[in-house]
Every structure is written in structure tokens, then in C-alpha cells.
Design a protein around this nucleic acid. Sequence first.
RNA 1: GGAGGAGUUCCCGAGUGGUCAAAGGGGGCGGACUGUAAAUCCGUUAGCUCAGCUUUCGAUGGUUCGAAUCCAUCCUCCUCCA
Length: 405
Amino acid sequence: MSVVDILMERGFIEQFTHEEEIKELLEKEKVTFYIGFDPTADSLHVGHFVTLMAMAHMQRAGHRPIALIGGGTAMIGDPSGKTDMRKMLTREEIEHNARSFKKQMEKLIDFSDGKAIMVNNADWLLNLNYVDFLRDIGVHFSVNRMLTAECFKLRLERGLSFLEFNYMLMQGYDFLELNRRYGCVLQIGGNDQWSNILAGADLIRRKEGKPAYGLTLTLLTTSEGKKMGKTEKGAVWLDPEKTSPYDFYQYWRNVDDSDVERCLALLTFLPMDEVRRLGALKDKEINEAKKVLAYEVTKLVHGETEAKKAAEAAEALFGGGGNLENVPTSSIPSGLLGSKILDVLIEANVIPSKSEGRRLIQQGGLYINNEKITDIDTEVTESFFKEGMMLVRKGKKNYHKIIIE
RNA sequence: GGAGGAGUUCCCGAGUGGUCAAAGGGGGCGGACUGUAAAUCCGUUAGCUCAGCUUUCGAUGGUUCGAAUCCAUCCUCCUCCA
């Protein structure tokens, strides 16, 4: 079975520039391909994770991935599908973010012995000479054609600066540069990158007279078409400091029934037979599939130890009994004993404001040690702490363990 | 460069001197129902010492007993003309 078959079976691929040729190429040769990452945050999120998985599948099949950090292009900002212009980042921020990305990628991608490469397009983009670039690259781009590209459509209505309009040339040039430097012949990206990928492949064909290909990956969306990986707290990050392994686990534990199979296929390495079996479970049964999904994805991102801890904590809280050791914990200074419950919860970061806490209690959503709190003026005394800890439940499934420092 | 228009609470979007912490929708949160799911229904959604008070409608000043609403300046964005 070729990688393409694997990727297709698992539902990764959205479109190809040249379907048959790509299949043949990937079967016969070891190919160098690239995927771009915008270093606009200091961590990757679950949206990137699909891409990482595709990259990992490719590498396992013997191909060589290039992770391209868009240090140069981030200074421009990709207008595709965005309604707003992107804020500009400093070089220091970009470099910091790139370092974080690599650490996260190493969980899935083997960078040893040049089996995968990370490069930053700032290396060639930042020193370009404007006129040379226009004469060399600019000539090959037809504005008429660019204007018809899907990715500019929205922005043509809402406004597009010349700066951002150039993004496509930059990305196209990246592909050309990678082709020249590393023999990279394939670009992979999210489906929103289609126009940009085409631009690059075309450019290589024109400049070098050599074939170049592209393919796009499905964007991780729910069955309703909404982007996945968004929570009330924002994106679901791969960085444990930004999204704790427990929260990360819970996110996948709680996906919609209808998304389970898709997620298992895209986000784990489980064999497809198993994926289909789990995805076919009905009603209560599918909870088993969700546990597998949560465990597997957490294991890939945070490692086996963390995944086990998260699963144990969830089991203890929701399955009843068990070990509460790994439940998310915050601590309060002992001086707070005797204070009102709201002050304690604020200190422990369970609630963002007292107003919200008050509302929570009034609506009957706050439990301490599984007893509903009805009095706003409840004082937290030592008797609330069993074996040194107090279990707070906010709403139906939000647990916090509070200990005294 | 010229002429118009716009900037509202997490998002979209009403509001054009007091009854506005600001309609409506989305999202979020809480509750009911459940399977730690979805759908549905109900409540709620600036902060605080919650009776009351304080800060909020691009920014800064001003008019007024009183401004998101009027005036001035500035910033940002959009449209048309060049």
C-alpha cells in the first residue's frame, strides 16, 4: 500500500495538482516535500496536528519532509480566507516561536541525520532585492489570474493591501527556492493553501522547466463544518503549558459522536480496521472509542506517561472512585482558610471573577466535595479539606482540586 | 491628492441627548434531558463591598443638569474619483 493510499484511506487528502503523477512518483521515488508553518504563535495547535500526522505518514514511507518556518512570510501575512490583516511580528518573536515548533514536531517527526529538515524562509526572503525579484519572479505572475483566485475573493470585497497581495509570490518563491536547494518537488498544505501551492508549482515549471506537485489536506472540522480545536479558552494547543494534558485529553474525550471516526483516522496511527470498528460503535458504546481517541492523541502529543495520568484522572472523576492524584490541581496559601468561597476560587483560578462565581452558585453549578453550594457567603474552613484536598466541581464536568500550600 | 462612509460590549450587529451596562443573533457559561455525545428547552452573559456604586460604545478634548448619541482634533478602515 503506498502512502497516497494510506493518506486517502484515512481521509487526509483534499485535492491533488496531478493525481496520477503524484501517486506514481511517491511509489517509485524517495521524495523531498515541504509543508509551511506560520510562526505566528509560540505553539502549534490541533489544526497543525493533522498536518504533522500527514508529514509523519510520509516520513514513515521513506520520504523526506521539510518543515518550512515562515519567518519571512510571517512579516507579510497570508490573506487567504482571513478577514483581517495580520499583526506584524518581530524577528525575535518569530525565532522564539520556531524553536517551540520544532520541539513539538520532534514528537512525531525524526529530524536526526537529515531525515527531516527545518528551514526558515527568512534566510532567503529577507535579503531579496526588490527590482531583481520583480524581474525574476514577478514576470511570471498574472494579476488577472491572481485576482480570480479563490483565496483573494473575500479580501477583494473587504480590502486587501498590496503587501498581502504579494504573499502568493513569496510562497511561490519559497517552493522554487526549496526545489533548487533541496530538490523539493512536492508541497503539502491545508486546503486553504491551494492557490498558493499552485502558484509555487507553476513557478517551478516555468523557471526550471521541471515538474513540481502539490496536494492539499483536509482541514480538521467537525461534521458541521466548524473548525475543530476551538474551546472557550481559545485554541487547543500542543504546548502543555497552554493546554494541560488533562484538558487536552478531555477535549478529545468529548468530541461529537459523528466526528470520532474521522479523528481516529486523522489523528492516530491505529490501523484502519480498528478505526472503523471503533467508529461504528453506537450509543453508549462509542464512549469506548472516545477514550481510545483521547488516549492515543494525548500519547502522541504528550507522551505515554501524561496520557495515562490524564486517563486516570478522568476515570477517577467521572467513573467514580479511583485515584484523584492526577486531577488538575491548584494551591492556595493557608492564610486563606476562613475566607469566603469566592475569594478562594479566584485565588485558585477556578473562576475569573466574583460576579461569575456568584452567578455560578445562584444557578446551582458549584459543588465542593460533591455537595452543592447554595450560600454565597460560605466560608472555606479546614473541614472542607479531606486528606489535604478539596474537590471543586464547576458545572457538570469541570473539576479542580485545591490543596493548601 | 479630492469626495463620501464607517469604527458599539467575546463576534456579528441595532441604537442618533436622558427610560442604555446598551435590542437581536452567534458563541460562552449554568440548569433540565442524557452517554463526560448531539439535538432540544430554560436561565444567564462588564466589574465591585451587588441595596448601591465604579468603568465601558476607535483616541483625546469640549458642549450640556445629563452623551454611545452633539462639536473639535487625531488614529484606523472602506467606497468612489485621480
